[in-house]
Design a binder for these strands. Sequence first.
DNA 1: TAAATTTCTTAACATTTGTCAAGAGAAAAT
DNA 2: ATTTTCTCTTGACAAATGTTAAGAAATTTA
Lengths: 188, 188
Amino acid sequence: MKQLKNCISEQVHIDTFSLEKIVSSFKKVTLNKGDYFLKSGTLCKKMAFIESGYLRMFDIVDGKEITLWIGSSNMFITSVSSFVFQTHNFWNIQAITNADLWLLDREQHFELCKTQPKWLEFDNILLARSFALLERKMFQQLHTTAQQRFQSLLEEEPELFNRVPLQYIASMLGITPESLSRLRRTGI
Amino acid sequence: MKQLKNCISEQVHIDTFSLEKIVSSFKKVTLNKGDYFLKSGTLCKKMAFIESGYLRMFDIVDGKEITLWIGSSNMFITSVSSFVFQTHNFWNIQAITNADLWLLDREQHFELCKTQPKWLEFDNILLARSFALLERKMFQQLHTTAQQRFQSLLEEEPELFNRVPLQYIASMLGITPESLSRLRRTGI
DNA sequence: TAAATTTCTTAACATTTGTCAAGAGAAAAT
DNA sequence: ATTTTCTCTTGACAAATGTTAAGAAATTTA
């Protein structure tokens, strides 16, 4: 709860009362390793703040699971387009460790947008930041080698390599698990 | 002007009067091939609706220009994070053909957000759609070969290959111009 | 139109990454 | 604790893409 409050108040100026009002719309949920927050083919009706643990977002192509990204503590995760437009969702979001989440229901989200201007403001900032982050990630993918991407992920999120199956990290880097093994071994 | 109006009214229900009010905040500008809409190192103070022509968004790494994407008619283009947060911008946005644009000043944008709820709504939809699009593009980059990405771009935007220097397209696909040549020749 | 510049293609070769198959190691289930 | 299952690593080889250098083609400039 404290983490969620911090996450919001770091981005927008907000009084204690409004902040309380906002976070009281969230509901705490614990997922076990392997549990799904969201399954492909459904409608996404919630957004989640990750208090602890790791979740991966993936889709399946030709029978292979491709991980787009891995969310960790103090991040929000949802299927943006399905949550916003209620189009049918294709992402799977699964806990890859036990995880504590704070969930916000779609309807309560829109209610907050109307009644709590600060929530709308925060939501916009969140989306714009997420966009900018993804943009940089895409850009990196265009001009770096697997080697370089591995190195920078290792520097930016070293904990990931202890907590999360390497096959998911490989997928997120756009390479096979075998290639990641090779990179880890030497840097060759 | 008609195109801009269509683009907005396709996404949100809006009365003629409000729509007029919104589009009257835009200002028409014509860029010649090679002109810059935005330069790296500056603050981004405008967003642009492309009425006609092509613009590319790129950054320079190790002396090489890397094109993240190419915008064409009926799309919006800006440096999202710099426009929203007024952080220093690193993207270059350049016209690669003559281009007609409708520009919206940052201050007028925020003014519209306050006075025209429909503009705020449209802006949110625009951002969410852009995010979803980028997400899919990133996902594609993770699990496809250069070959497959070339094929799908050729199917989705065939005109691009006649209108835009191939080196920019190559860069956007994450490959060298030489590789694109190879792919174009045969499919080998 | 001719010259100059930029862009595109080609080919040989180098490097990176993928594929396959086997086995080692780790984690989960019993 | 043992078995079973899943995950990771390794090595040999194949395929895809990058690099370099040269020249052809197209475009721009004079």
